[in-house]
Amino acid sequence: MMQSGGPNYAVELGRFDGRVSTRNSVNLPHGNFNLDQLTGYFGSLGLSPTDMVALSGGHTIGAASCSFFGYRLGGDPTMDPNFAAMLRGSCGSSGFAFLDAATPLRFDNAFYQNLRAGRGLLGSDQTLYSDPRSRGLVDRYAANQGAFFNDFVAAMTKLGRVGVKSPATGGEIRRDCRFPN
């Protein structure tokens, strides 16, 4: 992450992971979740609303297929109409769009600035600003990249502790994190 401008932090080592990973075992929040659904999802992992908003800032890098956000292009009142028009062009030509159109290759706080301008690609991202319960954190991170980085590191560390296995539950410490031993 540091190569793209993000914070540098020590990743905890020695985590027991499962021996099998499948597509069906991946459980992520949907791109159309509202704030209550997001809060419930992240809460079920033991993460706070602050963790949730900070982790969502990871969308400052990456892209999404039009199938994840196309439903918003037909007049979503929380989306900037000029942004929607640009996205309709992207969907016609490339079939995807960057999650952060302003600085897609930099890990920075532009993601939050985009939300304030109605330029959140996923509905679940834009709801962080549209819903007054989380808007204050979006405003804080949009104005203070250091605050975002600090909270992101703390939330990533907590996320890394979710669902840790043990030898008794079929876990292992991998020699290479990409492959089971």
Rank of each mutant, 00 (worst) to 15 (best):
G46K: 07
C66Y: 05
N34G: 14
P7W: 05
V138L: 00
F149W: 06
H30Q: 15
H30K: 15
T60W: 02
G18T: 06
T157S: 12
F179W: 09
G118R: 02
Q145C: 02
S21V: 11
A97K: 02
G170Q: 00
D108L: 01
L35Q: 11
P132S: 14
L159G: 02
F98S: 09
G118N: 02
N24I: 02
G31N: 10
L159K: 07
Q126A: 05
G170L: 01
S130L: 03
M86T: 14
A10L: 15
L13E: 15
G31M: 03
R106E: 10
S124C: 05
S65K: 11
L128Y: 00
F96T: 03
F111V: 00
R161G: 10
P104H: 00
A147G: 08
C66D: 02
D76Q: 10
L128F: 02
D108I: 00
V11F: 10
L45Q: 12
G123L: 08
D176I: 12
N144T: 00
Q145T: 05
A155L: 07
Y71W: 12
R23K: 12
A54L: 11
A168S: 14
V162F: 00
T39G: 06
G5N: 01
P49R: 13
D51M: 04
G92K: 03
N34E: 06
N27E: 09
F98P: 02
N181C: 01
G92V: 08
F149G: 01
L35R: 14
S134I: 09
G14L: 08
F42I: 03
S44I: 03
C91V: 04
G46E: 08
D17G: 11
S124G: 07
P77E: 13
N150H: 12
G18W: 04
L87E: 07
S44M: 05
T103I: 04
L122H: 06
P7R: 07
A97R: 00
D139G: 02
L38N: 12
G89C: 04
M86I: 07
P167K: 12
P29S: 13
R133Q: 08
N32I: 09
A54S: 10
N8D: 15
M52I: 07
P132K: 04
L122R: 04
R72S: 13
S21G: 09
S124K: 06
H30S: 14
S67A: 13
G163H: 02
L99R: 05
D108V: 02
S166K: 11
H59I: 03
D131G: 05
L115S: 01
G46P: 03
A155P: 07
V11P: 05
D125L: 06
V26E: 11
L122Q: 12
R175F: 09
T22G: 04
M1A: 13
Y112K: 03
L87I: 00
Y141V: 00
G163E: 02
A64C: 06
M86H: 13
G160I: 03
D108N: 14
L45R: 14
Y71D: 15
N34Q: 08
G18K: 05
F68M: 15
P132V: 08
T39K: 14
S4I: 06
A154M: 06
G18Q: 03
R15E: 09
D80Q: 11
S25Q: 10
G46V: 04
N27T: 09
S90D: 15
V164Q: 13
